[in-house]
Design a protein around this nucleic acid. Structure first.
Lengths: 233, 233
DNA sequence: AGCGATGTGTGATCTCCATCACCAAACCAT
DNA sequence: ATGGTTTGGTGATGGAGATCACACATCGCT
């Protein structure tokens, strides 16, 4: 059974892509302890404030991480993709999951029980380091998000920053400045801490200023610099 | 020289208190690689966006961690105290420091170079785990901060949350509901993302509603539940 | 087609808080 | 003391955006 999982996983995501430069022994140990499953869109891997059962490693697809405020409003922290271990902070510290993880599309995800992760981390310093690097990245991105969201209150600045960030991630060489818009205005609002209506108005304004063009779900940013000039306005 | 540092450190903070349940071998290795120094109030250990040189471990005193927005405004992420390793996320991930660390009072702080930390983490899985636990806590607290600050916009709610949080940390058994107020209104504003004036007005309002009493730098919260009722209002 | 559900566009209003301005109090050095 | 510096109190004003309210578009479904 263990070998079957390994084979399965290797088909899904080449080792080098998912686990970086982990030594083979650590990867092998990981694969043996992990269980890989398929999830449909909208599946909740874990919910905020649940006590941790284990970590989830994204092998295919994208997962939305969000926190939920007392008044019911939602803030999307980030979208995780291949190779991201989710829920590590909770598992390692023993505290409840600090966010909710929900699949945004059909996903393949490996699950690793809390005890197994901790055991493997103790045994393989390299693995612990890998895990720590991921948490560090998450921490850094959360810090950046805090800074961006709280210290720059014009909503247009936040939206511009988000769009530029997306541009960097989806830099398809053939169509520069072009990308698919996979989120609704509501979700975008949840990423920048604004209301749906504000996002709608901002998009309208950006179009009027020719900062963006939109046809269907395709978004084009003809002049990246102009958009950037809104940041630190 | 190495032994001198060890002796020094043991006088400053008992091993069990600073390093939790790390195995002696790991602590020994840490102490040998670390260099402990005294800092006056207001010293900047590292600044946001600097490339990482190493980690700082607080042995005595308190250190303020903050990020700075494009418009010059500041947000205080948290106050670190004894045993907290600072700058780990940056060192481990190789990215710039994500915040600025500044002493709030005279401190004793150990410094560990980047290469040494990474080497020690590789060698001692337990140490890597300890580091990871700390980052996890930081990450969790940052997530909570994001949620609190963005998803609850009434400033009074944020202040109430802050005060209740402080009450939990400073729960001196002899004087319940009482604590020292070590921050200025300006700094409190920087913790909840509001202006100095707003904090001043909020305090006045809280006093009028008998939610708090203040004499000098001593703050008394006679009725914790009443204050909590402001949260999720 | 026709019908719900879901997403989007846009006006009107209203509230909270940042900001400016200025003074009062406290603190600290000489 | 006494003058300078930091901190705290409070009014007045303005503006960004949340919220409400509704109409329109779009999509999937039987």
């Amino acid at each position: 059974m263990a070998t079957q999982v390994v084979n399965n996983a290797q088909k899904l995501a080449p080792v080098d892509k998912t686990f970086g430069d982990l030594p083979p022994a650590a990867i092998e140990a990981l694969e043996q302890a992990a269980l890989t499953t398929s999830y449909p869109t909208g599946a909740v891997l874990f919910a905020e404030a649940q006590s941790p059962r284990g970590v989830f490693i994204v092998r295919r697809g994208r997962v939305k991480l969000s926190v939920c405020g007392s008044d019911g409003r939602t803030l999307i922290l980030r979208i995780a993709d291949i190779g991201c271990p989710l829920g590590v902070a909770a598992v390692v510290s023993g505290r409840p999951y600090e966010a909710t993880a929900e699949t945004q599309e059909p996903c393949e995800i490996s699950f690793l029980r809390q005890a197994d992760l901790v055991r493997l981390m103790r045994q393989h310093g390299e693995l612990a380091l890998w895990v720590t690097q991921h948490i560090s990245r998450d921490y850094a991105s959360t810090c950046r998000e805090i800074r961006d969201l709280i210290l720059s209150d014009s909503a247009s600045e936040k939206l511009a920053r988000l769009l530029v960030g997306w541009l960097d991630e989806n830099t398809s060489a053939k169509n520069p400045g072009q990308m698919k818009l996979a989120l609704t205005h509501e979700e975008i609002g949840q990423m920048i801490g604004s209301s749906r209506e504000t996002v709608s108005r901002l998009f309208a304004g950006f179009k009027k200023q020719h900062l963006i063009q939109q046809t269907g779900s395709t978004l084009v940013i003809p002049n990246r610099v102009a958009l950037e000039s809104l940041i630190t306005a």
